[in-house]
Write a protein that binds this DNA or RNA. Structure first.
Lengths: 345, 345
DNA sequence: ATGAAAGCGCTAACAA
DNA sequence: TTGTTAGCGCTTTCAT
């Protein structure tokens, strides 16, 4: 089945290929082609099931109409929402979204960007990369627009959640939910999960420490257990923590829903009394947390806001790389301490 | 920054453009180019940061190296796992995965396929479409390989979960978990959520009915409440069911994690005694269900298996459209009736 | 108001 | 063993 081209259409309509092209890509008004001609050609094109070859167009125009999104993984509440939102927004703009995951692997990231460049994507959105600036530089060299999401870069503009503020608000809420004096949480409130090298995690740790220091007087390094996102790893970490009766957690801030999955397994095995007294927070939102046996206080990132601002940054690029902050929302579990409708931290 | 092409490389190396091309795309052995020449050219290419323009290559070869996956949504446990698995598998094969979501909207599906065709993707995988055969026909006309995932088509080959078997196994497990005679569930076991027009849902309903009929003697139409995937809708549906004291559910099979999110809100408000006696099943797996207040029996689909078989079908296309079945796994919540490691239905 | 022609960067016959 | 050449399907001056 030979695909139909503008030349076929030219023959069919008696017009020239360039006229057909113009009529079909919207530039015909500018070329002062008669409206009748345009309509007629479009009609015949439709009739024959003509479809522009976007590779040819892309080659010629040296842009593809593709918008790329780089993610670490799909199978995570935060990132899958991000992908969803990106997809919707890109489509709304007549772009074709192309999303790829890199497993947080620097080599794969590199490779992925090269691929995107090779396909002449018009823009690259980076959400969760080990070295965003390296990606930005590659994009720069290739003349591609590049925006960082949820991680700041010094080379390209970024839109990020207020991770520090969000974590601080979460920690505050945890202190408030805790039954007893703040001092009881000294050395007994922990942060578990996440990659310290990740900017977002770093900021969350900082926000956590701020609050813990202010409310208990100090925050020991041992209270930060950011040993990755892997559920199994964080489960082990939690296990270790609860195994030591003198330092067992009375409050636990879990960083990411992925780590949360793991930690939850450990919580489920705790004695009822200990469980009862424990305050649990989760940075990132999973709809099921509301119905767990334990009340969970969560921070929910404004995914749509992040994506919206990212495209905004693309539309009107600031003279210098900018960093736009989007505030997240604090949410409590059904029977928790905080307004379930969410309050801005 | 003018991008470097094989012609630049030809000048730089003193070879011809076609030699350069061959050295860079792997066909050089077939063209009996000296190994030294090949190495040298590759070195110079690397040195100059050369990157093949995949649009040009695609135009020439009339294939792009892109593999498309059509999903209804990203933000769902099943589909995000599917996307993840697809991404990994496609990359492993040197293809560039391009995933798009269509919101189960026929028009958007149509539009999406057209876009994919226009970009000359080499293959289209359809997971969750309202009219898979229409998509297959479009692909056929454009000469694209097309595989259906989790829904059967008559035009293209399909790989599907054993939805009927899975739902039957789930229903059986629910009867077994129920405290009391099967007869107590007559008219009191319901299926909630899903789109009856969806093939998968249809099959699950059939499997459910099989078991309910066998164990209670009958299955009324009122016991099937497949009113879509929207959490809000399914919550309303559940609400209605529980509001009627004479027919309030004693067992509830929820179809999809998305619908489950909604139903859970209603369950959380039930009186403790009623909750205690209720048996809940969920078709599709969410890691957090294990830790809910209610024990949940789940069916987990073999996402990797589905994707693996789909690519297999692509590699060795059967003479006639085939349907490959991949069995799902039955999983119990932590304190449920079924082996938590999963048993094959 | 429209057509002719060149060329985007690459590959694949066909020559040599 | 390598070079020459002719496109892939489209856009875009430049002519008319």
């Amino acid at each position: 089945m030979p695909k139909i081209t503008i030349y076929d259409l030219a023959k069919l309509t008696g017009a020239s290929a360039s006229t057909v092209s113009a009529c079909l890509n919207g530039t015909w008004r500018g070329r002062r082609i008669k409206e009748d001609t345009a309509r007629e050609i479009q009609r015949i094109a439709d009739q024959n099931g003509y479809r522009t070859n976007l590779q040819a167009r892309g080659l010629r125009r040296s842009r593809s109409g593709l918008a790329g999104l780089i993610l670490p993984i799909y199978n995570d509440r935060f990132f899958s929402s991000l992908a969803q939102s990106f997809d919707d927004e890109a489509r709304a703009r007549g772009l074709c979204p192309i999303t790829v995951s890199t497993n947080r692997d620097p080599a794969e990231e590199q490779q992925t960007v090269e691929t995107l460049i090779s396909y002449a994507v018009d823009s690259v959105f980076t959400a969760g990369a080990s070295d965003p600036d390296a990606i930005s530089r590659m994009c720069d060299r290739a003349g591609l627009a590049n925006i960082n999401i949820d991680l700041p870069g010094s080379v390209a503009s970024s839109v990020i959640s207020d991770n520090r503020g969000g974590a601080a608000a979460l920690a505050e809420a945890m202190f408030d939910a805790h039954d007893g004096p703040d001092a009881a949480l000294a050395g007994r409130i922990y942060l578990v999960g996440g990659e310290p090298a990740d900017f977002a995690t770093g900021e969350r740790i900082a926000g956590f420490e701020d609050v813990v220091r202010r409310r208990t007087g100090s925050c020991d390094a041992a209270q930060i257990r950011a040993t990755g996102y892997d559920p199994v790893k964080s489960a082990q970490e939690a296990e270790t923590l609860f195994a030591d009766p003198d330092h067992a957690p009375r409050a636990l801030l879990v960083n990411s829903t992925l780590a949360f999955e793991g930690v939850l397994g450990v919580l489920a095995e705790l004695p009822a009394a200990q469980m009862q007294a424990l305050v649990v927070g989760c940075y990132d939102y999973d709809p099921l947390t509301r119905y767990l046996k334990v009340p969970i206080i969560s921070v929910r990132q404004d995914v749509n806001g992040l994506i919206r601002e990212a495209f905004q940054l693309l539309d009107t690029p600031p003279p210098e790389p900018a960093i736009v902050r989007v505030p997240p929302t604090l949410l409590a579990s059904r029977n928790g301490a905080v307004d379930a409708n969410g309050t801005q931290p």
